[in-house]
Design a protein around this nucleic acid. Sequence first.
DNA 1: TACGCTATGTGTGTTATCGCACATAATTGT
DNA 2: ACAATTATGTGCGATAACACACATAGCGTA
Lengths: 245, 245
Amino acid sequence: MSADTKPHEALKNYLLAALTVEDFERVVGKLDLVLFRLGDVLYESGERMENVYFPTTAIISLLYIMQNGATAEIGVVGNDGVVGIALFMGGETMTNRAVIQSAGEAFRMKEKDLKAEFARGGRFQALLLRYTQALMTQISQTAVCNRLHTIEQQFCRWLLLSHDRLNSDKLVMTHDLISNMLGVRREGITLAAKKLAAQHLIENNRGTITVIDRQGLEDAACECYAVVNEEYNRLLGRGISRTFH
Amino acid sequence: MSADTKPHEALKNYLLAALTVEDFERVVGKLDLVLFRLGDVLYESGERMENVYFPTTAIISLLYIMQNGATAEIGVVGNDGVVGIALFMGGETMTNRAVIQSAGEAFRMKEKDLKAEFARGGRFQALLLRYTQALMTQISQTAVCNRLHTIEQQFCRWLLLSHDRLNSDKLVMTHDLISNMLGVRREGITLAAKKLAAQHLIENNRGTITVIDRQGLEDAACECYAVVNEEYNRLLGRGISRTFH
DNA sequence: TACGCTATGTGTGTTATCGCACATAATTGT
DNA sequence: ACAATTATGTGCGATAACACACATAGCGTA
């Protein structure tokens, strides 16, 4: 397999791609490719997980669901990371739901296999922990952004984080869905989208948002996006931002 | 020392107290007691840390500082945890500032000693990782709370989290300081404090807030406090909430 | 005891966002 | 082609929080 001319699909996930050849060869045998559709749930709040997932083309949203049904996203995971950190962090469950925000593929690894790999204590463990710290930074910045910034700024941050994890400029996503992620009204997103479209930063069609001016979007966002992006670069040793695609 | 009749001060920190006798005996030799005053900074954003701290009576706030000087707390650490997780998570630095919110003591451990202990991979490592997951839950809930709840509800959550980590009902803290933590205006806190005082949940004197009706405060808070508290109990195997004092 | 500093209380007008209602437009199914 | 469904656009009054201004009150100390 290492002699293949075509690189393994799993290398599309940056965590897996950062393994040594030796580690990768061993780990790859324990991975299964899974296809997810929009809305699929990888785990529920408080639910015991049986697998972790290393996304390649899928994007997963970590959502908190309030007792009254209101929702708010605390973070997003794509080909930069892994879903199911509670399995190696030792908590077994989390207080959020992991839901597919953008259809695509991910590699599944069984709990037992993951724990065995983690316990080896080598590069894989170090990578998983550094990724977890990066995710903490993203969640922290979500908290800050929710506190201090406007819907429009948050929408920009959210678009950029999604765009980074997508190999297309087209986000298939309704305003309503986005509003659930950001924990705001649907009308708030409609308004923000119109404003960004008027500045020619995005195109805003029924069910899809297309990124037109990536740099313009970054300028329109608050500092939160840049802080998170730089921390991911620093911790995971490569850009996940568009600059590096 | 294990034969002492008086329990070691370090046992006031729940992470250290959860170690096996053997682990504790070894670790305790590497701890130094430090006294902190209000406002002391344990590390700055992006600054290389040289120690971790296991608080006993001190309370530490993890603050994000925006470029324009605005601040927002992302989490709070007391005798339930440890400050400086970046040292074992592998990132070395974080994007926030750790600042003393309530004067008191903490045990300091050198980076090298901590990393050596972590690398042993035993109970101490497991505890540190589970604590990190608990902290992630707290940060997540801060994000949710910032998004969906009123200043008054957030103030209740904040009071409860602080009260849990304090061995007194008196919080020495100005409205101005609290407003910096919550990322709101000082007047907003004055108003919320007056409302809670009118309901006899707290007493609101110059420079101090005294918790009068703990249960009433919990009822006035949003679900965010309960979610975090339950998750700490589940992950760290003991209550840090007042119920268990 | 009086002065000065710090903390808290309060009022006014503004803004962002909300909740709700409803119109319009795009897509899907028959 | 038409009806039904889904997505988006828009208006309006309510509310929470903001910024700013300034009054009062508690505390330390000269």
